[in-house]
Design a protein around this nucleic acid. Structure first.
Lengths: 173, 173
DNA sequence: GATAATATAATGACCATTCTATCTAAAGGT
DNA sequence: ACCTTTAGATAGAATGGTCATTATATTATC
């Protein structure tokens, strides 16, 4: 993969998450990535495609984080706790909510590729949880707790929120 | 209060929630509210002030909803369940996340009045819960569950999410 | 006659996207 | 080593649109 392309994706992911998708212009992205405008349009056909690439990149990183901590042949409680701890590690450095939901909110049209991608991403998360021993209700329950921790960390102390999340998972699984 | 002013606030709240703050221009708001541009600037000094007024209006409606269902001298479990049910009623018609967090995400500068208002709003929610018998940990816990239900309802069936929320509250309080 | 609301247009800034033309650098063949 | 081809990257400007905000001047309404 081209270095310029990866630079664009990395800076796009950072800037869009920090300031929002409509607030950040392409000029800002290419300036911080040290890439010419035409180079960007050489790699991506539009701003929306760049956003999609940034989301894809983020999705891989997040799912890798979760994948690493789940072990086969482990009871539900242990896996749930490991996943919650991994998620806590994630939100410690990502206190501005879920980038995927934010993308869906800024591109609410059901025709939008971005909107569709976000829905697929969340379905993937549920599917991943089901592949790791959880039944449907447990998967939804854990997803609800993780999303709640993500949102609450936007306004409350993230360490306190994390402790509460882990406490909840211990009680419930 | 002026009818035109209230029309502006109502349509602003609806449009900003549906499509996002930066995506919706003032032209769209005043057209749908049937108000002239200068009338809008007569009532509000800027777009950000209109947004603040819309958030204030929404906050009052949401807190009224919660206020109505909590009764004094009731045990924690009953109050927690009533609040969760009230919140479920809310998200049934508001499946695009928390408008306050979305505002904070689109106006991330800590100098922004909008950002400050959202933080104050969430502090108010916690404070409200504490005034209704909940200790600090219970308030944080309930807030986490409510935020989780709000987020998850953006991508999963809201009735299913609601059932799970109520189930969780029954287990935990 | 005062107050509120209107329509219209101007301002200046920013936006995504496209076009043009130049430049660099590596690759391949002789 | 030298030349040529090719692809990728560059700068800069143009297009056409939208945006928030301000100014001006006119119309209702009470």
């Amino acid at each position: 993969m081209s270095k310029k392309r990866q630079d664009l994706i990395n800076h796009a992911e950072r800037l869009f998450y920090e300031y929002g998708f409509h607030s950040v212009g392409l000029k800002r992205v290419i300036d911080e990535a040290n890439v010419a405008l035409m180079t960007m349009y050489n790699h991506f056909n539009s701003k929306e495609e760049l956003i999609l690439a940034a989301l894809k990149c983020r999705e891989e990183r997040y799912f890798s984080l979760l994948q690493e901590v789940v072990k086969q042949n482990q009871d539900s409680k242990t896996n749930a706790l490991s996943l919650a701890e991994a998620h806590v590690d994630w939100i410690r450095t990502h206190k501005k909510g879920c980038m995927f939901l934010r993308a869906k909110e800024e591109y609410p049209s059901e025709e939008s590729d971005i909107n569709r991608y976000v829905i697929a991403h969340k379905k993937s998360l549920i599917a991943f949880l089901k592949k790791v021993n959880f039944n449907h209700q447990e998967a939804m329950r854990l997803a609800l707790l993780l999303e709640g921790a993500t949102s609450l960390s936007e306004v409350e102390n993230v360490e306190e929120v994390s402790k509460e999340l882990l406490c909840l998972v211990r009680h419930l699984f």
